[in-house]
Each structure stands twice: as structure tokens, then as C-alpha cells.
Design a protein around this nucleic acid. Structure first.
Lengths: 147, 147
DNA sequence: TTGACAAATGCAAGTAAATTGCATATACTA
DNA sequence: TAGTATATGCAATTTACTTGCATTTGTCAA
């Protein structure tokens, strides 16, 4: 069965002067359907399951172009590899469970104020930030208690 | 001229059940003398200048042991490699200039409160966080203006 | 001070993420 | 539908980091 083409993705890509190739469309759809930031390896596997063969080198290139165009944001969970998520999901941070790997989002309520503060007091213009939290989710805290 | 041995470093190492080897002592001294987080490559170069030849593999191993023992903290500036700084310098974040590379420290006034908030409202226990800011320092903002 | 042994190092080989060069394939435009 | 700029696949490369093993060295006890 042929995968239905998501026309909004196609449009989104073309608006950015990017050709709507099968790999690019599939990656956009994947990112839209996934709540957790994904890495290149898992993207390749996901596409394989949809019978879309994409070389890792190609996926790396796509992620770079998408990042340059501002479609996605690279995220670092300190695993020695990059993850990515849709830029439209911005204004939040992640709570990464170090036990089960689950990722929760939390709203970003303080960085804008903090960046203003940094500019006023340190005369430093913030363009980009990294802010992630690692620890134990509710379930894994309970599990740990029961040991 | 022989480098004077910093006896406090030696003691610090031995307290942690680590043998006080020349490379380890020199790295501790380097970290104490440096305000910016350093990567393995720059450590090797710095030691060479002090006529201490240390293999990168050894430095990587030392950084891993120091991290495990809590002497240093790994820091990620999204350059594809790790940096490290003394753990005793903790409770601050970095303002990294993307133009000249300069690193300023800012006091951490909000993370403790934020982590409490995260535990109360999201039931997530934060054990570790990453929080860095990238942008333009005062000087580089001026330079950019004059173009 | 010395000698023995566990621990640290150097060197070389091995991983894994990410990049790059080049020939081929393909999406878009006219 | 054909021509062309662009994207992809594949293989080779780069770079950070790790690991295995033989050798060296710091430490501690005698």
C-alpha cells in the first residue's frame, strides 16, 4: 500500500526552497508524529519500516538543511549524538529520565526574562541556549523506592 | 627549570584514592589556573608546553576518572567534543560568545528553585542539568554594529 | 631505602557519529 | 516532456572517544 502524501509537508518544504523528496517528506511527517526528539539512527530505522530506504549520510544532510532553514532544532542529550525536533514545538525544555529514557516537555516560563536580565547586567546578547534536565521520572522514582 | 609541584593538588588526588602522577597533577593545576572549560585537545597542547607528554588516550582516561570522582564536571558547548571544568566552580552557567569564543560565567540564581518547581509540579526528580547560553559578548556586539 | 604489586600510561587498533567527493538519479521549471 | 539544478547513494574520511595489552611508575610495607 502506497503511503499517502502529506501535502502540508510538501508545501512547507517548497516554501523553504527545498525539493519535496520522499525522504524529506517522510522525515517531516515523522517529526510531526513524534513527541520525543529523534536521532539520525532512529530516523533511518523508522523510514525503513515505511519501506523508505534512506542512507544515513542523506539523513544527516537533510537534518543539516532543515536546521539551517530553521525547520528543526538540534538537541543534545549528552549521548554522543544529536537529536532533533520540530522548531514549531519550541519554547519548552525536556525532562529526560535517565532510567527509562522517557522525555517530558516543560513549558519555558523563565528563559525570556533571564535573557533580558543577561543583556542588562552582563551586556551579553543571547541568541541560543541549551537547557535540559536529567533525572528520574515519577514511575522510576517509585521503582527505586521499592528496592 | 623544573616545575614546582603543587602539593595541594597531590593531596586532593590522594584523598580521592588516585595516584598523583605527573599528568594528573599537571591537569589539576591547569584546571585551577584556567577560567574557561577546556577540552582534551587543548589539555594535551598545554601539557606539551610544560614539557609533559601525555597521550590523548591517557587524558581521556584521566578526565573520566576525575568526573567519576566528582572532581570535575563535563560541559557541552555543542562543538562535538566535551569540555571540563573543576567541580568546585559549580553553581554557575556560561555565556559563550559565538564570534570570539570568550566564555563568561554567570551565577546560577534560579535552577535550585526551578528544580523544586519541577519536582512539585511534574513529579520529576532532577539530578543533573545542562544550561548554557550562546550569543555575542559586549565587544563582538560593537564590532557587528560597526559593519 | 628498597622491592613488590596494583594501578597508570603509551601505543595501536577499534567504534561510532558525522562529513565529504563523486557518479547517478530525480524533482522541478519551462 | 526534456533539461538542469539539486538530492541521493556509496565509499572513503575525519574526529572524538574507547579499549586491549605490554610496559612503566607511584605507593606502601618491610
Amino acid at each position: 500500500m502506497k503511503q499517502k502524501i502529506n501535502h502540508s509537508c510538501k508545501g512547507e518544504l517548497q516554501q523553504m526552497d527545498l525539493r519535496a523528496t520522499p525522504a524529506r517528506i517522510a522525515i517531516m511527517q515523522l517529526l510531526e508524529a513524534t513527541q520525543e526528539p529523534v536521532d539520525v539512527g532512529s530516523i533511518v530505522v523508522s523510514l525503513q519500516k515505511k519501506s523508505i530506504a534512506a542512507d544515513p549520510a542523506t539523513v544527516f544532510r537533510i537534518m543539516n538543511v532543515f536546521t539551517q532553514k530553521g525547520l528543526i532544532v538540534p538537541i543534545e542529550f549528552q549521548e554522543g549524538k544529536m537529536r532533533y525536533e520540530l522548531a514549531s514545538k519550541d519554547d519548552h525544555h525536556h525532562l529526560v529520565c535517565e532510567n527509562c529514557g522517557k522525555v517530558e516537555d516543560i513549558e519555558d516560563t523563565l528563559v525570556p526574562a533571564l535573557e533580558k536580565h543577561i543583556h542588562s547586567y552582563h551586556h551579553f546578547l543571547v541568541k541560543r541556549h541549551v537547557m535540559e534536565f536529567f533525572g528520574l521520572c515519577k514511575k522510576c522514582q517509585k521503582k527505586e523506592k521499592n528496592n
